[in-house]
């Protein structure tokens, strides 16, 4: 498991029905690209988060396929529609098989 991987999400706690809200996500992860070599000259194997998804009450907002060119501590900002009260679910998929999740509940304003 990659060490010290922590997701962070900024999303509003309340929204009007049908409101468009801005969501920001950040996850601390080294995103080892596979391009670097260690001090002995051996290539350090790739180990990145390769996919990020955001859903609201089970419906897809955004699904991102990520490559090593995404910077360390991957950051995304996008907009979601909140039709009703419910849960925003964020998922990050690591090359090493780990899956990181975060959920934010949004109430109706």
């Amino acid at each position: 498991m990659a060490d010290n991987v922590r997701p962070r999400v900024k999303a509003p706690r309340k929204a009007e029905p049908g409101e468009a809200v801005t969501i920001k996500t950040l996850i601390s992860h080294p995103m080892e690209s596979g391009q670097r070599k260690d001090s002995d000259g051996n290539p350090i194997p790739r180990s990145i988060i390769h996919r990020f998804t955001c859903e609201f009450n089970g419906e897809m907002v955004v699904d991102v396929a990520m490559e090593p060119a995404i910077s360390t501590n991957p950051y995304f900002e996008f907009e979601a529609v909140i039709p009703e009260a419910g849960d925003l679910k964020f998922t990050w998929y690591d090359d090493d098989g780990d899956v990181y999740e975060e959920t934010k509940t949004v109430a109706m304003a």
Partner: peptide, 12 residues
């Protein structure tokens, strides 16, 4: 770099 797929609840 990345491929972004937008679902039905993407506001933009």
């Amino acid at each position: 770099v990345a491929e972004f797929r937008f679902g039905p609840l993407a506001a933009s």
